[in-house]
Amino acid sequence: MTFDDFRALVRLTLRDPERGAHMLMGLNLPMVVRWMALLLAVSVSGLLAYLAAMLFPVPDAETPPMYSLVQQPLVMAGMQMVAIVIGAGLMTGVGRMFGGRGNFADALLLTVWIEVMLLLIQVAQIILSLALPALSGLLGLLAIAMFLWLTVQFTKALHGFASGPKVMLGLFATLLAMGFLLSFFAASFGLLPEMPQ
């Protein structure tokens, strides 16, 4: 894929995500290329997060609990890799439960492409933070909206679903279930803060 092809695919994804998803799946990339793309995407994401932490340090008094992960790009990349693989598995499994016909290989490719699109926002956010810090927070909200929008559109394309609202409902239900399970495991391993007495 040339740089012009990459730009064209980015534009198509923003203009018509379902067509972009079908174009990606139509490339019939070998599985090893999909895994390599995942590794590259999470590595770049971890480095960008580390760069942002170096450029815009947070005072110790205001440091959020997860901030230490940003300062460890390899750990960050590993966690993102696991999250993307789980996301691709859920996109495949939950979709098939509702009559979809998608497979894990294509789901992995689509979730990696979502990560690539978010990387573009991440780069823009770092640049904007240097020039207009007040507006950089808006890009964070845009990233969340883009993630949800692309996930819904790509899930429709992957499984051949017709209803966006139903896919969105399924996505929120899956996120809620995952949040409950993760909080349960975190509490079991003592990773959640203790409640004040």
Rank of each mutant, 00 (worst) to 15 (best):
L47S: 09
R11L: 12
V58H: 06
V42Q: 08
L12F: 08
L14K: 09
A37M: 15
G26Y: 06
L51C: 13
S43L: 12
A52M: 10
A53K: 02
R34L: 12
R34Y: 06
L40A: 14
W35K: 00
M54W: 11
M54R: 13
G46E: 10
A52Q: 12
M25Q: 11
P57C: 03
V44C: 12
P30N: 01
L55H: 11
P30M: 01
L48V: 02
G20N: 04
A21V: 05
L24N: 09
A41M: 14
P59A: 03
D16E: 15
T13W: 01
V33F: 08
W35C: 14
A21N: 07
E18Y: 00
A53I: 05
R19F: 00
A21C: 02
R34E: 06
P59N: 05
A53E: 03
Y50L: 06
M23G: 05
V42L: 06
A53P: 02
L27D: 02
D16M: 03
T13K: 04
G46C: 06
L55Q: 14
L29E: 12
H22T: 05
A53W: 07
R15A: 11
L48G: 14
R15V: 08
M36S: 15
A49Y: 10
L51Q: 10
N28P: 00
L24Q: 09
L24R: 12
V33A: 12
T13S: 10
M31G: 05
G20K: 04
E18C: 02
R34F: 13
L47F: 06
L12Q: 13
V42K: 08
V33C: 02
L51V: 13
G20H: 05
T13Y: 04
V42E: 04
L40R: 08
R11H: 10
E18W: 00
P17K: 03
P30T: 01
A37Q: 15
S43A: 14
A49V: 12
M23V: 13
T13N: 05
V33M: 10
L38N: 05
L47D: 01
F56D: 10
Y50T: 01
L40Q: 06
L40S: 07
L47A: 11
L51N: 03
M23P: 04
V44Y: 03
M23D: 15
A37L: 15
Y50C: 01
P30W: 00
G46W: 08
A37V: 11
R19V: 03
M31K: 11
M54T: 07
